[in-house]
Design a binder for these strands. Structure first.
Lengths: 332, 332
DNA sequence: CTGAAAGCGCTTACAG
DNA sequence: CTGAAAGCGCTTACAG
């Protein structure tokens, strides 16, 4: 592969000059400019980002850690990030953690060695001190839906979302409302559940633990939860699922048991992954602007990268909006 | 950020020694070894992959170019690749092309500059000469479902798949079978359509152009296609969709029009994205081992990277298998 | 058993 | 208007 030396030699100039014409970083006479450019194309020269990164101390690469890019929610988030990064001239390294702490650590280590300019981290609730090495090295981190000291983040108003979803069901006359929670992690899921319970309480409906199932965000776990609900002496007439995928799984199971949604049982999801408009029936859900959030996370990170100073910690909260489609209906 | 010099100084040894203990590349006395290791942890030293890459001439990074990682098919493929790469110590840079030639070129350029060790390329039918720069620079490329000279690839037996899908419908007694094709690109879609036509012909059913709609692989376009079918004087009794997402879209539209699947109309997809088991009704499809293919692509690439020699061009063909679920039924 | 030095391929003051 | 040289942070022959 041609180097800057090859180009310089071919053009009969110094490597400084080659560098300067390529980066347009100082004036070069039209004549030598032309010679350099000619040599560049003739030799098919592609400057090494590695060498440049070494001296410039920036790689124009960011790391993205998600639990699983197959999960449509994270897929859409990743898309928003990649999009925005591309426009700004950054590449993104995709890291799936499967919510495994050891994989996270391994990837964090790799990203540190690769000298990424920043990382977008979203996943388990790793102890903050795992993230600190980055902070100390001056590598910006932003997180999503997790609140750490000193780390910028975009947060969701999960309590409000859970509350709104449940209110919607209550207003349709449901009083026996099941809830499919996410795995027992502090923020996301449990705040949604808290919102659910708050709405119930407000409506003077006592909380019934039998109506709470814990899933793991996958469609599969939504199926399991639905099966448990149906096994109850008196099944719920409506279900609030803490994400869309579990709702999809629940609906699939119900249908399989001859239970019609929403006629026999209403189901509301959370997220509004793009798919949710295409399932049968189209899913009522709490709409979250996923791709825009991805974009926002990326921009937030680029801002941190720009001003090396550890400025004020930023926190943006996004509130979801109830989106009524066809999976919920008046209680019969 | 601490460098190897800092560590060497702190441990009172030379940088060679530090390098050797870290890479275990030559014997170092237990005593100095300990001193080095101590300094490493004390200084929180993380060797720069950049510097290493510069001398070793390998980055342990690969590029992945897909049209859109939100499309579940590519999401699953990417997952398989990332997984396998991780195990082998490689990171992957995620590049979405949106099937735009200019984005592809921009990313190809970036990957070349970042000196990735190889790229997995899947997307439009860019002229082969676009890929050639890589080949010439000795950077291995593997492709998926596209056949280029001198480039390793995993291919799908699309003709057979289209044929099998259509045979399935024929065997259920359908004779009026619609087909939703992908965008007009040589390989994937049109071979599936060819298989469809071959099965029809074999059954002595004349090909009817009205029964062929062209989509763009998205659920949205599946909806549009279904609407066109329903607008026909005599709509089809079965639909073969060239991928699952369009089938999902078609089913959503049909349901919206009060048309039941499979009672009123059968629908068969292609791919077996993991979602297809959870839609209503669960989708009959041509099952493709997507994640394994991703893994295979990654391994193929790593093989190329290993032996720098441009060995025999490899081509592996994967045949899909009919997977009958509930979206297809006997004609009524 | 360990160190000094060249080199990977760039950018960027410093000079003229 | 352009070049010589230092330096980014490593690995790896070459020596002893």
């Amino acid at each position: 592969m041609a180097t800057i030396y090859d180009v310089a030699e071919a053009a009969g100039v110094s490597i400084s000059t080659v560098s300067h014409v390529l980066n347009e970083t100082r004036f070069v006479s039209e004549n030598t400019r032309a010679k350099v450019l000619e040599a560049v194309t003739r030799l098919n020269y592609h400057p090494s980002s590695l060498a440049r990164a070494l001296v410039r101390q920036e790689t124009r690469t960011i790391g993205l850690i998600v639990p699983d890019n197959v999960n449509p929610f994270f897929a859409e988030l990743a898309r928003g990030i990649e999009n925005h990064g591309f426009q700004a001239g950054y590449s993104v390294i995709l890291c799936n953690s499967d919510r495994s702490t050891s994989k996270e650590l391994a990837y964090l280590e790799t990203l540190l060695s690769k000298r990424v300019d920043g990382v977008i981290y979203m996943t388990t609730d790793m102890a903050t001190d795992r993230l600190m090495p980055f902070h100390e090295e001056g590598i910006p981190i932003v997180t999503f839906d997790r609140d750490y000291d000193n780390i910028d983040s975009i947060l969701l108003d999960n309590f409000q979302g859970g509350y709104d979803a449940t209110r919607h069901l209550l207003e349709l006359g449901h009083t026996r409302i099941g809830c499919i929670a996410g795995p027992d992690s502090p923020s996301r899921s449990s705040d949604r559940v808290r919102g659910y319970r708050a709405a119930l309480e407000e409506a003077h409906i006592p909380y019934n633990p039998d109506l709470l199932c814990v899933g793991d965000w996958t469609a599969r776990s939504g199926q399991v939860a639905a099966s448990e609900f149906l096994r109850l002496p008196v099944p719920p007439t409506a279900i609030f699922s803490c994400n869309d995928m579990m709702a999809v799984g629940a609906i699939a199971f119900l249908r399989d048991r001859g239970c019609h949604v929403p006629q026999d049982i209403s189901v509301i999801g959370y997220d509004n992954i793009s798919l949710s408009a295409y399932v049968c029936p189209p899913l009522t859900t709490i709409a979250t602007p996923i791709e825009q959030i991805g974009q926002g996370l990326c921009q937030m990170l680029l801002d941190c990268i720009g001003e090396k100073l550890p400025a004020e910690t930023q926190r943006v909260t996004v509130r979801g909006a109830l989106l009524v489609r066809e999976s919920t209906a008046q209680v019969t």
